Computed example of a mutant assay.
Amino acid sequence: MDVVALAGGIGAARFLRGLVRAVDPARLTVVANTGDDITVHGLHVSPDLDTITYTLGGGVHPAQGWGRADEAFAVATELRDRYGRPDWFTLGDRDIATHLVRTEVLSRGGRLSDATRVITDAWAIPFRLLPMTDDDVTTMIETVDGHRLHFQRWWVGERAEPPVAQVRFDGAERARPAPGVIAAIQRADVVVLCPSNPVVSIGTILAVPGIREELAAKPVVGVSPIVGGRVVRGMADKLLGVVGAETSAAGVAGLYADLLDAWVIDDADADAADGLRAGGLAVAVTDTIMSDVDVTTALARTALGLVT
């Protein structure tokens, strides 16, 4: 069975730990959000690509769920204390090595997908990891007081505190899917929407022309990132209302209504199951809190079982 997963952030990375046990990794393609990418100290940083790589490669910080384990910050400290450089987006020393490699590939005329292949090969990632596009797409936050902030500036630098008026994906309308993305979707037997932020992770991927259209012809199953009316991690609740969705398992499903065939929700949201089924979805109710890899593997198998 060929599987494509759309992924972004910590929730997706953790879900993939189970998905690679539920399917043959050699037949899995993961398409990752790159709207969060940012240049820091001249280095191209791809947070979602790196979180997936570090998590599946066994090098992620176990408590944070992002960044490197056993990290040091000598470079960041020197940049801040000696050179007075901003430190709101801190890069660890081990993490910098990844960004140096990526930036070197790009500076020689390579594409983001080329750099991603170099990095994932070095980490022995068992599946194909692709950026959603090689083109520049930047998630921008427009605040209610009229400021435009890069998503990372709002999310990390401002701790997602400024109220949001609109989310924009600058450059998305001109972007093309990265090489291999469309072919993987066309070949797929099933597409999985990982439990990621539906607005600025999955939504960003779907904003790239051609991807949403191809998904419409495929069986699509998603795992809700909302449990009991609350986000499990992150701050999606601050953005769902901006796009007209309530913070609920049903609210997120509604954002994917033109694509979704099946939806996995947590036991805490069991009372929403009948309404979702009445809307035409196949629904599974199970434990979606990915407390360990066995639970996560069972979750992945439940999701796939709804559409295969």
Rank of each mutant, 00 (worst) to 15 (best):
L6I: 13
G228D: 00
L129Q: 07
I182Q: 07
W88D: 02
W88C: 03
T39A: 14
V101D: 06
V181N: 01
R277W: 03
G222I: 06
I141Q: 05
D269G: 05
G234L: 07
A74V: 10
R117G: 09
V118S: 06
G228M: 01
V192N: 01
A273E: 12
G222Y: 04
G65E: 06
R148Q: 14
A13C: 07
P219S: 12
T139S: 11
A257M: 04
A273Y: 01
R168A: 14
T143P: 12
G84E: 01
F127H: 08
R128T: 11
P225I: 03
V192I: 09
I52A: 14
G305M: 06
E71H: 08
I185C: 00
M1G: 11
I211S: 03
A273P: 06
D292C: 05
D50K: 14
T51Y: 15
I226Q: 06
G157A: 04
V3Y: 02
M132A: 05
I96W: 08
L215P: 10
A97T: 12
V4M: 04
A300M: 07
V30T: 01
R85P: 01
G241V: 04
A183Y: 04
A273L: 04
V231M: 15
R80D: 01
Y83F: 09
D261I: 00
E246Y: 12
A124Y: 11
D93M: 07
T51L: 15
G244P: 08
T51F: 15
S201F: 07
V101P: 02
R21N: 15
V167S: 06
H41D: 10
T29W: 14
N33P: 14
A184E: 08
A12S: 15
L28F: 14
D287S: 02
A268L: 11
V243T: 07
A5L: 03
A26C: 12
E214Q: 11
W263D: 03
V199M: 03
A76H: 05
